[in-house]
Simulated assay, not measured.
Amino acid sequence: MTSPATTVSYETAVTDLLGLVAYGELTAFERLAADSALAPTLAGKAQVASMAAAEFDHFRKVHTRLAELGAEPTAAMEPFVEAVDAFHEHTRPADWLESLVKAYIGDTLTADFYREAARFLDADSRRVVEDVLEDMGHGVFVVEHVRAAIEADPKVAGRLALWGRRIMGEALTQAQQIATRRPALAALLAGVLAAPDAETADDLARVGQMLTRLTEGHGARMATLGLSA
């Protein structure tokens, strides 16, 4: 069998990853801006709008890095439109609480995924991705509101737990689709491809280990929200 490293390049892999991150941040901005309308209070609306603004700032940083690498940002994002849009279509929140859980579970799961791949990037690209993943403190807002809702009505916990599991399942489904269609990105995630100044790995079992870490992280965040994984 031909090794992925012999058929794909690091340049393609880094463009793929940054294209995925860029489109993910752009759609996160759009989603949160729309979800702010679900907020029951003006303070909640302002908080979610602030989250949306942060996502757009992240998008601009990744867009700039793609241009620095000589890639056309729109073209770099295009291969991921179908999968990312499908994720959001299949996890459209029905109310304010579902939108908060999605923001917390979905965005942090995505951040974990990016963090795994960033280990194999060149230093400048890695810094951009890590900057995008910087904790803006929005998670505290989500946790406080979800836990307060559960305390006020314990029956809410069951519905939101199912919702959190649905988000996780859909995210993994779309991630598998992306990995199948973008071999360079899959090779980067496996550590088969890496920048000269990055760490390397040669064990394809690393992908399975990565999925285990993503699942464990999801369980920990569900517990933080007061939900069962």
Score class of each variant (00 low, 15 high):
K102H: 10
G106K: 15
E78G: 04
D95E: 09
R126N: 04
T91A: 05
A76C: 09
T110D: 03
D112P: 00
L109T: 13
F56I: 07
H88C: 04
H63Q: 13
V48L: 10
E78N: 10
Y114I: 00
H63V: 04
E98Y: 05
E98T: 00
T64K: 11
D57I: 06
T64R: 10
L69D: 13
A111E: 12
W96K: 07
A76P: 05
H90F: 07
L100R: 12
E116Y: 12
E89D: 13
F56G: 04
H63T: 04
R65H: 08
W96T: 00
A94V: 04
E98L: 08
Y114F: 15
V101K: 10
L109K: 06
A103W: 01
A118H: 02
L66E: 02
A86K: 15
A94N: 14
R65V: 04
A83W: 01
P73W: 10
E78W: 02
A103H: 13
E130L: 12
V48H: 10
G106V: 02
E116W: 14
T74S: 12
T64V: 04
I105Q: 14
A71Y: 05
K61V: 00
Y104W: 02
Q47D: 12
K61R: 13
R115P: 01
L66I: 00
A53I: 15
R60K: 07
T108V: 06
E72G: 05
A71L: 07
V81D: 08
R126M: 00
L66C: 03
A118I: 03
F56V: 02
A76W: 02
S50I: 02
F120V: 01
H63W: 15
A103E: 15
Y114M: 14
A76V: 01
A111W: 02
E89C: 05
A76F: 05
L66W: 00
M77K: 11
G70Y: 14
A54R: 15
E55G: 08
R60A: 09
V128A: 06
S50M: 05
H88I: 04
F56W: 02
E82T: 14
A94M: 07
F56N: 09
H63A: 01
F113S: 07
H90L: 09
E116N: 13
P73V: 01
